[in-house]
Nucleic acid binder design. Structure first.
Lengths: 214, 214
DNA sequence: ATGCCATGTGAAGGGCCTTTACATCAAAGC
DNA sequence: GCTTTGATGTAAAGGCCCTTCACATGGCAT
């Protein structure tokens, strides 16, 4: 008794029907909830265990330590992020320039609609050396931007280095997201939406690269 | 015994020569050290107290709680930041465009050379509502950028809105600083320096605003 | 000299992270 | 079917942290 009711009695045995059934995923889900409601610092291993209805020691059967769980949340976040960005880019349709704008907006949208993931990904200060999977997941997400930059560069007369272009786009979106696009309770407010701020910046920036304005 | 030797016996009585003398500042200094070596999350109130040679309860005579001390570090950080940025801007000398470049470089330099302050300012997640002084200090620092943007705008044919310009500069510098200009042990590495990345971005951006290139 | 208030102490309650020895349950092999 | 075995969970304990409270102390004003 006291399992959260996800035993799925009649169907999938939810992995390998054990004591809990699928504690690992339950813990990740609990962590996501807690991070979302109280920030990445407010989340505690013990409380995640309580949410899942197990003792405080149980999580150690599935994660090396608290950071290991956090890094798994972050990794999952980067995977979703990658999908999200890829959808927005949509292989450069209708045209690279417009698609890159969508990409930037998606970055901001992700930060706003998935604050828990975003926190784990960028604000939890997880060592990338101790969690190589996390680094790889982040790299894969960046690859979407990288590819977009490549195709956009190809449409520009000046043919700017695509890596530089990608880093500029990522940095700009990240800066605006970090500063202004968090629900962060007590953050600063703008005279314009983060999306408009980013779009304006991209417009000016691409103009500077010699885009034919539209 | 066991005070860190700053009694200044012969001179200023260091404020109001009390038990410790100036515990408040000693705690801030200790916090800065600890944040610098172990990140803002690694810093603990208790250890700061030990560093200062007092009991764990003593800090509560000077700070409401742990966050209150952190917010004071952050506030002090913003004040230094403001000075640092103002020096770099140097009232627009030799010319606004060059001075803005210095400003951006200063942003990155601060993030790199004062990681403890930077952490407290931007990564400690201190509620701005609970610490209005902190918000004000941040606003004052931003004002430097705001003023620089105003003067730079005046030199540009297109006369872009200076607030937008300031937000763009701040966001860009912040994004690059957050992603790449931290000693953060295990962070990502670039094919170019953060400074070069920022300078290139500013170059393109200003070109886009119709600057006469140089 | 006296009393007040700011400053510091020690102890205590409560919480968290993590480890260790122990229990239990599922599956696999005999 | 029964036993073995390894994965999974528990209870308890150590260590550290945050915060509060009652109490001590020492400067300063009167």
């Amino acid at each position: 008794m006291a399992w959260s009711g996800n035993k799925e009695d009649g169907e999938g045995k939810s992995r390998r029907g054990y004591h809990h059934g699928n504690l690992r995923e339950a813990l990740i889900a609990a962590a996501l909830d807690l991070i979302g409601s109280k920030g990445p610092a407010g989340f505690t291993f013990a409380e995640a265990a309580r949410s899942a209805g197990v003792s405080a020691a149980a999580p150690y059967r599935h994660f090396r330590d608290r950071d290991d769980l956090l890094s798994d949340v972050a990794r999952q976040g980067f995977e979703r992020f990658e999908q999200f960005l890829a959808n927005a880019w949509n292989e450069g349709r209708p045209d690279p320039r417009t698609a890159v704008n969508y990409l930037g907006k998606a970055y901001l949208a992700f930060a706003r609609t998935e604050p828990a993931y975003y926190s784990a990904m960028f604000e939890a200060n997880i060592s990338l050396d101790d969690h190589p999977e996390l680094r790889k997941a982040g790299d894969r997400a960046f690859e979407i931007v990288r590819k977009a930059a490549e195709e956009l560069s190809a449409t520009l007369p000046s043919r700017p280095p695509s890596l530089m272009l990608a880093l500029h786009i990522w940095s700009f979106a990240h800066g605006i997201a970090s500063l202004f696009a968090r629900g962060d309770s007590g953050r600063r407010n703008l005279p314009m939406s983060p999306e408009d701020l980013l779009e304006a910046a991209m417009l000016v920036y691409l103009e500077g690269l010699g885009s034919s304005s539209k």
